[in-house]
Amino acid sequence: MKSFNSNGDGKHKWTMVVDLDRCNGCGACTVACQAENNIAVVGEKLASEKRTMSWLRVERYFEGEWPDLRVIFLPMPCQQCGNAPCEPVCPVFATYRNPDGLNAMVYNRCVGVRFCGNNCPYGVRKFNWFRYKWEKPLQEQLNPDVSVREVGVMEKCTFCMQRIRRGKDAAKDEARDVRDGEVVTACAQSCPTGAIIFGDVKDPESRAAKLVKSKRRFRLLNEHGTEPSVVYLKGGA
């Protein structure tokens, strides 16, 4: 297994650590993501056709039979793979590897062939099948830092790129490095149990960099060699 720091030649390597022992499946991360990133609410009918637009979903796994049942919740954002299956299949380079080790998606370059969504083993890429509307007072709450996606464009979790950019902006003003905890994604900020920890693993003192070395760590579908940037922790005291 390659080291977690291997990919991304930039100054940072943003990583999300999700502690599954702390997650109670409340779904606050999903709601926060929806609000932060101008994600459309598609409604009941489209959701039943599996055209939901959430960038972060909470998956449920059941262990055992009733009444000895245990539910495991697994928040699933884009894994920001180091060796992403979505990147080589894009014919227009709308998705590419960013210097900070993120799997970037450029909406205005996307032509909507959906190869990336088909090639994603995690199923986290969402396609804008329709032009979604924000009812009259709701358009006021759109985040100005995030573009509203057009119809026919693929979209996915960006690790709250706009917040990373703000953090870097503030750091540049004071001519210093980005501090640990300065950049927090919307999901990490809203998690009531603190199960989601976001940070830069190139900063050895950051909380994420320390948790990434934990013995409880695992990554989803690591056998595919996708090198995800999201690290899960499970099964421990």
């Binding site: 210097p99 450029v106 573009s147 960006t158 790129m161």
Partner: peptide
Amino acid sequence: ASTDCWACHT
């Protein structure tokens, strides 16, 4: 300066 797409586009 940065010519990363995400420097200006999100």
